[in-house]
Design a protein around this nucleic acid. Structure first.
Lengths: 215, 215
DNA sequence: GCAGTATGTTACTTGCGGTAACACCAGTCT
DNA sequence: AGACTGGTGTTACCGCAAGTAACATACTGC
């Protein structure tokens, strides 16, 4: 038995193989998009389908393994930005920038993680199943942005700012609503109040806790 | 020709038929979730597949038509809340509440619009977001919520507030990032600055425009 | 009668996820 | 040595869903 060796060698053969398969899958998915089939992935890895299923169970398992690698990296980067020594405002900006820089640097990975079910076949007019949410959120964001631009005096660069805020506020509403609908951690009124408070700048007003480095 | 009649009757037979089909599709989709097959929808409508394809082109067309009906209703409700005569804070709360009440009242519709590719039971073609990207957003939201709870002094009901803010801020970042990545309307630095400004309460500070009713 | 168009059908193709069933090839136990 | 075991690999198949002919039947206007 060379298990002792393996631990020093850092990898059992199965894990090694699994990593190779994941890397092949990664290549295919980032090249062909989410429509990549198990057959294509297997071919890229130089093997055939059943082996993939032995390693990952089903397609969801493969996806999960694939997603985990990328999300862990992103989360680590975000935690680092969030923990850096600086004042709160700077930390917030740094975290935002880290996230945006990540998705900017690897847009294929981002689209794979966030919009997996796109473009099933190349027709004109790229709408398809799974894209419904995006149009709705986009429309809400754009409309809110226009309302803000029309009614709020934001000084210079007002339009750009208003659109950003529109999409940001809509996203805030959507994500909080989605989470709340699933977990029901509080009443609707409380949720509304908290979100409105957030928009009203209580994040800036709140004091740091006495025992921490502040946020 | 009875086109004159049709215009007074408001509907040509084709449109009438289309509406019936859409209603049948709606029933099936809201009952079976997004995994509803074209066959099932056709059966519910009392006909067979090719007719659906003649009316809607492909499955995406059907879903799009279906989604449009619901999103239009939601957008109308939101616009009404946004336009109601009241001060800005009240209007914001009212809009948030309208949205949340809507998704609370019709969760099946909401899940269809926002999480089209869910329902774990067997056989999901293409990769699935709901299972994996949602986890990413949820994890980010929860972690941020914890960080806020640990470091910011929010007074009573701090934990609940912190979690809400965590998810809300993450959602804001995600939606704004997604939109920005697609349209590139400004530099990354501008986006970061605008979002941080939003979190810093500039929405509350800004004055109303002179020519409007205010937001 | 005859062309045109809308409505409907059955029967098919294509492609996917997923699964048997079998084959090969280490090492291991007796 | 020879049977046992576990991992790697294969071919060939199932079931199911999207999408598409090709054909059949009405109803219209000329």
């Amino acid at each position: 038995m060379d298990i002792a060796h393996r631990t020093t060698d850092q990898q059992t053969p199965a894990e090694q193989r699994r990593r190779e398969l994941l890397e092949a899958a990664d290549r295919v998915v980032l090249r062909d998009g989410p429509k990549a089939s198990m057959n294509a992935i297997a071919a890229e890895a130089g093997i055939t389908k059943p082996i993939l299923y032995r390693h990952f169970g089903d397609k969801g398992g493969l996806y999960r393994a694939l997603a985990t690698r990328h999300t862990d990296a992103l989360l680590d980067a975000l935690r680092a930005a969030l923990d850096a020594p600086a004042d709160r405002r700077r930390r917030v900006e740094s975290t935002l920038d880290t996230y945006l820089a990540s998705i900017e640097a690897m847009p294929q990975v981002y689209r794979f993680l966030m919009h997996p079910a796109e473009e099933p076949h190349q027709n004109e007019q790229g709408f398809d199943v799974g894209r419904h949410s995006a149009p709705l959120l986009r429309r809400m964001g754009e409309e809110l942005g226009q309302v803000i631009a029309e009614r709020v005096d934001l000084g210079p660069a007002a339009e750009a700012q208003a659109r950003i805020w529109g999409h940001g506020i809509v996203g805030m509403m959507h994500a909080a609503g989605d989470w709340w609908l699933g977990e029901r951690p509080c009443s609707r009124a409380e949720l509304v109040r908290s979100l409105a408070d957030l928009l009203w700048g209580r994040l800036a007003e709140a004091d740091d806790r006495a025992d921490g480095p502040g946020f």
